[in-house]
């Protein structure tokens, strides 16, 4: 049901619903040689409940910084200069560090690009997947480890009981990313922030992971903010799109509108530059 509602682009503009994540006038500065230079300028975006929002941009567009600011996980050299970030009705930027720790995992989770790097190589996958539960409930890790198999099952890992006992290097790239998603889902947060989660994967595996994310949204109503440089992925997965460039949002709209009727030069250029396996070849050949 959630999916039916959310795939309707008008949801994004619904005034009477509280957004899962709302970013208003966010500016971020970066320190280079002790001089603070603005890198993200007055960015506003929203992720509505049950909606998959794509943030697309090339390197240096500020898409990752903006998402990290939502988790209050900016690197040391970066700071929020102005703006508001609200998770549901919670003002993220005024929370204490311990309140933030409670929100991360519980209310929102990050799915990183490089799962291999994000997983601890010396710890069994099951224990890592269950770790957020132990951290937030104060229970001992061993006592919650049983949940891990169930979580791995929900992300489509076969023989979850056995695989929970495996170490990360025994997993393929796709399985590692599934494990990261399972970890993100451990506390059933309402919002997932996925930063290029499929960029390191082969296309066939990527297709499976994208399906998994769509399933999670459809069955659980989880909102997803999906950061990527890949127009194709956005087209397949997202309901609403923000196009970023040089730290600004240049265009936003429903996926249908952005791809069928792009307004900005930059969006048009991106569309034209992306090679395709359909339609005429971009150049040469014929």
């Amino acid at each position: 049901m959630a999916s039916q509602v959310s795939s309707d682009p008008r949801v994004h503009d619904k005034p009477d619903t509280v957004a899962s994540l709302s970013v208003e006038g966010l500016s971020i500065e970066f320190s280079r040689r002790r001089v603070w230079t603005p890198v993200v300028h007055d960015v506003s975006m929203r992720v509505m409940p049950g909606e998959i929002v794509g943030v697309i941009g090339e390197s240096g567009s500020g898409k990752t910084l903006s998402s990290l600011a939502a988790l209050r996980l900016l690197p040391k050299q970066a700071r929020v200069a102005s703006g508001r970030v609200r998770l549901g009705d919670v003002d993220i930027l005024t929370q204490s560090e311990s309140q933030m720790r409670n929100l991360r995992g519980n209310r929102m989770a990050l799915i990183p690009q490089d799962a291999m790097q994000a997983l601890n190589p010396t710890m069994r996958v099951g224990l890592q997947v269950a770790e957020p539960i132990s951290l937030h409930s104060g229970q001992r890790l061993k006592s919650v480890a049983g949940v891990a198999a169930k979580l791995l099952e929900t992300v489509g890992i076969a023989r979850p009981e056995q695989q929970a006992r495996a170490f990360p290097h025994q997993f393929s790239g796709g399985m590692q990313q599934r494990a990261m998603i399972a970890m993100g889902l451990a506390l059933a947060p309402g919002l997932l922030i996925a930063d290029e989660p499929t960029t390191a994967l082969d296309v066939t595996v990527q297709a499976q992971v994208l399906n998994l994310l769509r399933d999670i949204r459809d069955t659980r109503g989880t909102s997803i903010m999906f950061i990527t440089h890949d127009l194709g992925v956005v087209a397949e997965l997202c309901d609403w799109v923000y196009v970023m460039r040089h730290g600004r949002i240049v265009e936003q709209g429903s996926v249908r509108r952005i791809f069928m009727d792009p307004q900005e030069e930059y969006t048009k250029m991106l569309l034209a530059a992306t090679p395709s396996i359909h339609g005429p070849r971009r150049k040469g050949g014929v």
Binding site: D230, A235, E236, F259, M260, H278
Partner: peptide
């Protein structure tokens, strides 16, 4: 498996 915006456009 290739995600492709032109599929959507078609």
């Amino acid at each position: 498996a290739v995600p492709d915006h032109r599929k959507l456009m078609r």
